[in-house]
Amino acid sequence: MPSSLTSNSAASAPILEVRDLSLTFKANVHRHWTWRDWFVGMTGKRSLTSLQAGDPLKVLKSVSFSVNPGERVGILGVNGTGKTSLCRCIAGVYRPSSGQIRLQGQVRAIFDTSIGIYPELTGRENARLLAKFMYPGMNKEHEEMVREALEFSGLGEFIDVPYRLYSNGMQARLCLSMISCRPGNLLILDEVFDGADLFFREKISGRIHSLIEKSTAALFVSHSPDQIKRVCSRVLILHQGRVAHDGDVADGLTTYRELNRHKP
């Protein structure tokens, strides 16, 4: 196994330790192929071996950092620097090509708030399903969580309306209320505030701050330096798949601007 996920209950140890993490996608995976293309290639001059052509796509290169309890770590970087891929590795969606991820307890991650599991079902029914996936093994608490999250979301009578009729902001309210209804060991929020309106953003920020205080850590991915400054106690700047800065937020934002000064 190239990576390992371990668990123990030591409270003083980092919640997350990432060591020499690399993620590479094989050559042909970033191409869009159809059987028709393949057939035309086979019957034309291109051979089947052309499927293996191309360079490996190195998304993350030897990334190392750790997160301690109570920390709010911002992850900043321009598009394509591997922010979301890093979070997906930590959340267990991607398997790293090499390196280690040591995690104490459970990670709770959300990468998009504009999608329901079943758009035809109501907000309440979707919230119940989300509880199953976000809080596995806590069945006895699910009803209470859903009730509390729906109340916090302020969706009122829209709770029993099909999810597909929700606006982006309403969907964000439901998802963010669900993800923040119980403290987890590590919370990953990947550009999720973007869909919510200003007032709910303020409301949810308060709730997430309170979650972090309950010995939880969080990783925030954002394109907004202002948001990082407001929410985070530390920042990680990713540049071309590597960590370019890990530490103070103000210094990190300076590094971020320096690195991308010449970009259009």
Partner: peptide, 9 residues
Amino acid sequence: GKLLKSYPI
């Protein structure tokens, strides 16, 4: 796709 990349499913 969007669902699987958004939630831990």
